[in-house]
């Protein structure tokens, strides 16, 4: 079959490219120049212990703003595409009631998961984690509620308000960085604090908390619009 042959030829070519790349790969013996800069200057520049967080929030902060904007667009497009869908063809099986165990368990677990998400994004400048991970964890708390009670009406307005308020505050902090410190999204608008304590690294915890709320709201909205059956 010619289609399958073409597919195989394409993949074989790609595989050859990958093989050449793999054979020519040699792990660097030392850091390259940009990584060396980050390794040496992150503490004096930003005060963050987690260099990945410093890169995401401060050094490449504008990219992150773009990224959350892309996520917002995605959530909006998903909601738009799914609105007003046609009814399912064929009889729809009724919703099965969820069990007592799931109900009780989710009442216990949802606040804990949300708290853990907040912990993850507030400690993003010190330990592994940050706004995106925390936001995803908060969205999974939301997912658990959704699985427990699919018929529950979630407040779209609350999700939309959280999303837009944190997005606006994020941009406002960026502009404050232009006015008070070195440039857009500079974290030195707040005192640097002591290295390694939770209230350190200037505005990084604040920005990461806003990113966490925004990402959590966006993921929740995507999950909601994909899970809601048309009424």
């Amino acid at each position: 079959m010619i289609k399958r042959a073409i597919a195989f030829a394409l993949l074989a070519g790609l595989g050859l490219v990958f093989l050449a790349l793999w054979q020519g790969f040699e792990p660097d013996p030392s850091l390259n120049r940009s990584a060396l800069y980050y390794a040496e200057n992150t503490v004096t520049d930003t005060g963050a212990a987690n260099i990945v967080a410093a890169v995401i929030v401060t050094y490449r902060g504008l990219d992150t703003l773009g990224e959350v904007t892309v996520l917002f667009l995605t959530a909006a497009i998903v909601a738009m595409v799914l609105r007003g869908g046609l009814a399912d063809s064929g009889p729809r099986p009724g919703r099965w009631p969820t069990g007592e165990l799931l109900h009780t368990g989710s009442r216990l677990l949802v606040p804990l998961i949300a708290l853990f998400g907040a912990y993850v994004f507030l400690n993003g400048h010190l330990t592994p984690g940050g706004g995106f991970q925390g936001g995803a964890i908060i969205a999974s708390a939301m997912l658990l509620m959704l699985l427990t009670d699919p018929a529950r009406n979630f407040s779209h307005r609350l999700i939309a308000t959280t999303e837009s308020v944190s997005g606006l505050a994020y941009v406002a902090i960026g502009l404050a960085g232009m006015a008070l410190a070195g440039g857009f999204l500079d974290n030195r608008i707040l005192p640097m604090g002591e290295f390694g304590s939770i209230l350190s690294a200037g505005a990084i915890p604040l920005i990461y908390a806003l990113i966490g709320l925004k990402v959590g709201a966006e993921f929740s909205s995507i999950l909601l619009s994909l899970s809601e059956r048309e009424k």
């Binding site: 987690n50 993850v120 984690g129 991970q133 995803a136 999974s140 997912l143 999950l223």
Partner: peptide, 15 residues
């Protein structure tokens, strides 16, 4: 890469 590991576990395999 613990940051990436957390993200992949929460987003890639969960959501």
């Amino acid at each position: 890469a613990p940051d990436v590991a957390m993200t992949e576990a929460a987003i890639g395999s969960g959501l």
